[in-house]
Amino acid sequence: MTTVSVQNVAKSFGTIPVLHDIDAVFPQGTFTSLLGPSGSGKTTLLRIIAGFVAPDQGEVTIGEKDVTGIPVWGRNIGMMFQSYALFPHMTVARNVAFGLERRGIKGAEAQKAVAEALDMVHLSDFGDRMPKNLSGGQQQRVALARAMVIKPSVLLLDEPLSALDRRLRQEMQVELLRIQRQTGLTTIFVTHDQEEALTLSDRIAILDKGRIVQSGAPEDIYENPQTRFAAEFLGDSNFLTGVVEAGGVRLPDGTLIQTTATLHANGQKATLAIRPEKMSPTPLEGATNHVAAKILTVIYAGPALSYLLQTPDGTRLKLFQANRDGTLMREGDSITLHWSPAHSIPVQN
């Protein structure tokens, strides 16, 4: 039960800066995702917390303790890797017991803890197997048991589910969340998969080019993205750019888009983000914003319908709809999109 915090951390590899002035708090018992594209520095941040990478400046604290100068083996962390990283020359039980041995726990006590940990991941009968005789999902469960059995202060997950196929990944997500909730362990999860971040996390921190661009609860970030990057990386977004005028944004073609959010001073440029599923091709009550667009492509995906559209001035837009009655609009149709001013979110470019 530990709060992890990172203060003022920066890191460069050679002359290439990887992280700039990162400040983040991971409150005790929360499941936080570090979400970002490759090269955003999310893995480096996790490795700094783990102790594999020494930051150029700043501090890392786990609980009350400043661990910046403490090597990995002294930090009491549980870690899972994308490549499972099981010890190939040891049985499953000996893999799990490895961390216990390092803490001087041996014999019956260790056996009991190993059995409990394997039971937790539903692999009770697999103790005598070698890792190579297990499937990917089973190997990752062993890795989870191995990380949990030492009762770590914090669980660090480096894209542990990326190597698994879709179905197995979903199963493991449920499992991971169950175990995290059961143990109340502070968990930091690195991923580039936005869906995974949304389903698993209490909090998400979005990283871009070595900075945390936005952090908060998944629904806060999704509903109120602050930057164009956050709006695009977490979910899909339409962007309309124009000039601020009379509490709205005047598009180049003269349409005034209204928003309930506060904008810059009149005459300044502004970009509005609108989620594709918040738009509607039919008029709705309160949906006072509208733009005309032509359908370019129709994507039929069973329960969901996606349309790619283009406005007369060439802006590309997306529209998501639930497949309610099986009727599709056609390519080439001209429609008008309606949405509420509350769903026009001003974002920084």
């Binding site: 783990a50 102790g51 594999f52 090597p71 990995v72 083996w73 002294g74 930090r75 009491n76 962390i77 549980g78 870690m79 890797f81 994308q82 490549s83 499972y84 990283a85 099981l86 010890f87 190939p88 020359h89 490895f98 961390g99 390092r102 803490r103 890795a143 191995r146 990380a147 030492i150 660090l156």
Partner: peptide, 27 residues
């Protein structure tokens, strides 16, 4: 030998001597 295996051992509390004798030499 995958780097992650050595890092996993470190994260579990292994120092260089244990990594050498229990991981690297056997592998």
């Amino acid at each position: 030998i995958d780097d992650a295996i050595i890092e996993a051992a470190q994260s579990l509390g292994a120092r260089w001597w244990v990594i050498l004798t229990k991981i690297l030499i056997p592998l």
